[in-house]
Design a binder for these strands. Structure first.
Lengths: 213, 213
DNA sequence: AACAAAAGAATGAACGTTCATTTATTGATT
DNA sequence: AATCAATAAATGAACGTTCATTCTTTTGTT
């Protein structure tokens, strides 16, 4: 523990300062992400309306007032969390994806990535589902959260041009591609159902049948 | 106004009593449904966490205390609303449906009914979407709300036996049948997208491609 | 010593709910 | 048909609590 933060006495003064700055930034980041994590947990378990700042602070191990050093207010905290999680989803979804992959192959990669995220990163996914359908997130922020999905839209665009994918609105494609996964996650989360590996591949077939030309 | 509630002096005393009881029940129902409607509107526009009893009362035109004559507490109010709306959805979904219809025909009927509800009864559908992903509704009540969907599950059962529908879990079938509609509703609600009539039929084709054997 | 980070107590507003009354309706009695 | 006690429905103010946020003090670092 202490070991980690020991003074690096072999370094120059300037280097030392840099080192301390790094630690400081890290500590700040730690606290910030502890707060975000606490918010995630509490909102998931109790809903937005029952995740008071006092509890968030307690779970993160800080005083209530400390939250306001890192976030403007509760809305800002929620917005930040939303954008962060949304972006982490995109990062996972496009892992290993290259824009020059054949349409079906690229789509399959993205879909399985997304499915794996939705069904395994349960806390994050549950939170996103909750955000998707409440006025809890500002519309502006919601739009911002959609940005990182661009590569998928581009892929669809290409698929439509090549006659591989139905020439329909991205919204409809999304409704049959990613959205069903949210439902399966919700059922899994409520212990009503668990998707097996074989079913997952069946499920991909369903998605593909739905959107292919 | 007064006309409506005029004494039906041509009726016997017993009949008169019955008449008055009817009016009383109607008035009570009026107030109750005014409260439910107000809750629906406020939860939709502001979210559960911003729909206080005081506002609900004001919008329904009653005093805050009056709510507690009709509902145990806020949770009960929400639960009641949820069950009522959920049931109204089912009523619409199965309008004109007979259990002896051929599988595809019956499914098509139900799907279009459901789509029409989701895309037209916007307030109700938006509310349901919001409920689907929050801890706002007790799990027990949520289960109760699923009951009226039985005929659809039976239809799927039959479809699987006849080899018409993929032998998959009802959850997966639901995820590709009804759930995508919720997404399209949400997009429509946010003025991001409007499903045209032609697209609706395309969309049905997608659903059918996904679940047919 | 100077400074920023963090804490904890404090604050006013807002919440869900209750309570003491008032108002409206009913049924019996004249 | 009129009166009146009894009951039910409805109210607005008030309660205790909890909330998001701020203020003042303490702690820790340079």
């Amino acid at each position: 523990m202490e070991e980690c933060y020991r003074t690096p006495y072999l370094l120059s003064t300037k280097k030392q300062t840099e080192f301390y700055n790094m630690i400081k930034k890290k500590k700040i980041k730690d606290k910030k992400s502890a707060l975000l994590k606490a918010t995630l947990t509490l909102v998931n378990n109790n809903g937005f309306h029952n995740a008071p700042m006092s509890k968030i602070a307690k779970l993160a191990g800080v005083a209530p007032a400390t939250i306001y050093l890192y976030f403007e207010n509760k809305q800002d905290l929620i917005n930040t969390l939303y954008l962060e999680v949304k972006s982490s989803f995109s990062v996972c979804a496009f892992e290993g994806y290259e824009a020059d992959l054949p349409v079906k192959q690229g789509f399959e990669l993205i879909w399985y990535n997304a499915a794996s995220y939705k069904l395994n990163q349960i806390e994050e996914s549950t939170f996103l589902s909750q955000c998707d359908n409440t006025p809890m997130i500002d519309e502006e922020i919601r739009k911002e959260g959609l940005e990182p999905l661009r590569p998928l839209l581009d892929l669809w665009e290409r698929g439509k041009k090549e006659g591989i994918i139905k020439p329909l609105s991205d919204f409809i494609l999304y409704a049959y591609t990613i959205y069903p996964l949210s439902f399966l996650l919700a059922m899994q989360e409520r212990n009503l159902y668990k998707v097996s590996k074989e079913e997952l591949s069946e499920t991909f077939q369903m998605t593909w049948s739905a959107i292919k030309s």
